[in-house]
Simulated assay, not measured.
Amino acid sequence: MTVRRTLQAGCAAALILTPVAAVPQRAGPQAPGTLISAEPMSGAPAGADAWRIRYVSRNDSGAPEEVTGVVVAPRGAAPAGGRPVIAWAHGTWGVAEKCAPSTGNFFGATPGLNAALARGYVFVATDYAGLGTPQPHPYLVGASAAHSMLDSVRAARQVSGADAGQSFAAWGESQGAHAALFAGELARDYAPELKLVGIAAAAPPTDLVANLTGGADPSVRAFLTAFTADSWSRHFRIPLSTIGRPATARLIGRLAQNCLTIGKKPKLGTVVGILALRRDLRGVDLGKIQPWARIARENSAGQRAPGGPLFIAQNSKDVIVSPTVTHAFARRLCTRGARVRYMTMATPGGHVTSAADSAIATLDWIGGRFAGAPAPSDCGRF
Rank of each mutant, 00 (worst) to 15 (best):
T228A: 15
L186T: 06
N105D: 14
A9Q: 15
W171P: 02
P138F: 04
E39P: 11
G132W: 01
G33L: 15
A210H: 05
A63E: 15
D151M: 04
E193K: 04
N315T: 02
A346I: 02
D364P: 10
F236I: 12
L255P: 01
P306V: 03
L275H: 14
V3M: 05
R279Y: 03
K195P: 06
H147L: 15
T213H: 09
Q290L: 11
F227V: 07
F223Q: 00
V352G: 13
F107I: 06
W93V: 11
G43T: 06
P204R: 01
Q135P: 11
A155F: 01
A38R: 02
P374W: 02
R254Q: 07
G337F: 05
E185I: 09
R188W: 09
A249I: 15
P111Y: 12
S42G: 07
D230F: 07
S144H: 08
R54N: 10
S358E: 01
T362W: 12
A22V: 11
V141W: 09
A115K: 13
G368A: 03
W171R: 09
R52S: 08
R157Q: 03
V319C: 07
S102P: 13
T270V: 09
S167Q: 08
T34R: 13
G165F: 02
T353E: 07
L260V: 00
G108A: 11
C379V: 12
R245M: 08
T362N: 13
G302C: 14
V220A: 00
D127R: 02
H351G: 06
A125E: 10
A355W: 05
D280C: 08
A355T: 11
G263L: 05
V209P: 14
G130T: 05
Q30W: 07
I238V: 09
N299C: 04
S102D: 08
A177F: 10
P24D: 15
T324C: 03
S377I: 10
P192L: 13
A226N: 04
T68E: 07
G380K: 03
A78V: 14
G69V: 04
I274M: 00
A31I: 14
S231A: 07
P136H: 07
C99G: 12
G337Q: 03
G142N: 02
L186V: 06
A169G: 11
L113D: 03
P205H: 01
R58F: 05
T110E: 04
F236Y: 04
W232L: 08
L186R: 11
Q314G: 01
L275K: 07
S57W: 02
A162C: 03
E193F: 13
G287Q: 04
A46W: 10
M343Q: 10
G43D: 07
T242M: 04
V85S: 04
G112N: 03
G198E: 05
P84K: 14
A356V: 12
Y121I: 13
D151I: 14
P138H: 03
S102C: 06
C259E: 08
I16P: 14
N59I: 08
A46T: 12
A125P: 00
H327S: 11
L286T: 03
R294C: 12
P134K: 00
I36H: 11
C11F: 13
G132K: 00
A77K: 05
D318L: 00
R294T: 09
R75S: 12
N299L: 06
R119S: 00
W365P: 09
V271W: 04
V122H: 00
D357Y: 06
R245W: 15
V72L: 01
T110W: 05
L363D: 02
R282M: 10
I289G: 06
Y342T: 01
L224Q: 14
A293D: 09
